[in-house]
């Protein structure tokens, strides 16, 4: 027919097509490298024997791990970070499960409002919330008792993660299970405990893992609430990176990557990666 619509001879176009597909895969590989590069570099650098940051390391040792684990400020930061993240996660799960139950069960007047209210921390800039909380604490002169305030603030920022995850798993649950339980004589409370919570367990676990991770990693809110008494590991890390260009942040970072990896694998095992795909 009218082959003049083709600019190039057929074999050339076919070849370009193949090259294009190859290029596409190469580009995809390059961006994958971009995503993993900073993590891999940090891990490699943490085993350096040098006393300053350089790549590739001149030699390998565990010096910086020994150094990091012996520092008291790191140990106290890790401890308080763990306490804060654990408490915040537990509280956020309880509050979040109740709210998710409301959102997932059946439509009611004002459900949209409830949804926007409980998820609103996601829409406001963290630095604004952080400063706003700090401002109020100073106003009511409670800026000296740090741990409870820190925990409450962390419950607030992790709550949306719990709600989204639990809500998704509850919304997918079969309502006839509840009806079956009630027809077998279970009270609403028994139904909630034995049926609703059981079937939403993967969602609750996934939400708890995400909440713990984001609480443990938070910088934006915590940096406003940090005091001489209570500080968190990421906040300490920020100031350490700023003032000490040695490889000790790499060692801390590697430990954090290892913990996150464990949580990530657990999350993937319970099917929680789908939580990222919904929305």
């Amino acid at each position: 027919m009218n082959s003049d619509r083709f600019l190039l001879p057929a074999p050339v176009e076919a070849l370009l097509w193949k090259l294009g597909r190859l290029l596409f895969h190469v580009v995809g590989l390059a961006w994958q490298l971009f995503m993993v590069a900073p993590l891999i570099i940090v891990v490699v650098v943490s085993f350096t024997s040098a006393s300053y940051l350089m790549f590739p390391p001149p030699g390998y040792s565990l010096d910086w791990y020994r150094e990091v684990l012996s520092l008291s400020w790191i140990r106290s930061a890790v401890t308080s970070s763990l306490i804060i993240a654990t408490c915040a996660t537990l509280i956020a799960v309880v509050i979040g499960v109740l709210a998710s139950r409301v959102l997932a069960k059946r439509p009611f007047r004002g459900r949209g409002l409830v949804e926007y209210l409980v998820l609103s921390p996601l829409f406001l800039p963290g630095v604004v919330i952080g400063f706003a909380i700090f401002n109020v604490l100073v106003m009511i002169q409670m800026d000296r008792v740090a741990m409870p305030q820190m925990i409450i603030a962390h419950v607030m920022i992790t709550l949306p993660f719990v709600i989204r995850s639990v809500w998704a798993s509850m919304a997918g649950a079969d309502i006839s299970l509840e009806e079956a339980a009630q027809s077998l004589g279970a009270t609403p409370a028994q139904t909630f405990w034995h049926v609703v919570l059981k079937s939403a367990r993967p969602g609750i676990l996934a939400g708890a893992i995400l909440a713990f991770t984001f609480s443990f990693n938070d910088v934006t809110i915590s940096i406003f609430l940090t005091s001489s008494r209570v500080t968190t590991l990421p906040v300490q890390l920020v100031s350490h990176i700023e003032y000490n260009p040695d490889p000790s942040p790499a060692a801390i970072s590697t430990l954090m990557i290892a913990i996150t990896l464990a949580l990530f694998v657990f999350l993937a095992r319970i099917g929680g990666l789908n939580a990222f795909l919904e929305r």
Binding site: M1, S3, F6, A10, P11, E13, A14, W17
Partner: peptide, 9 residues
């Protein structure tokens, strides 16, 4: 063999 799909009619 060398004709890509869009030129095979």
């Amino acid at each position: 063999n060398d004709l890509p799909p869009w030129r095979r009619d």
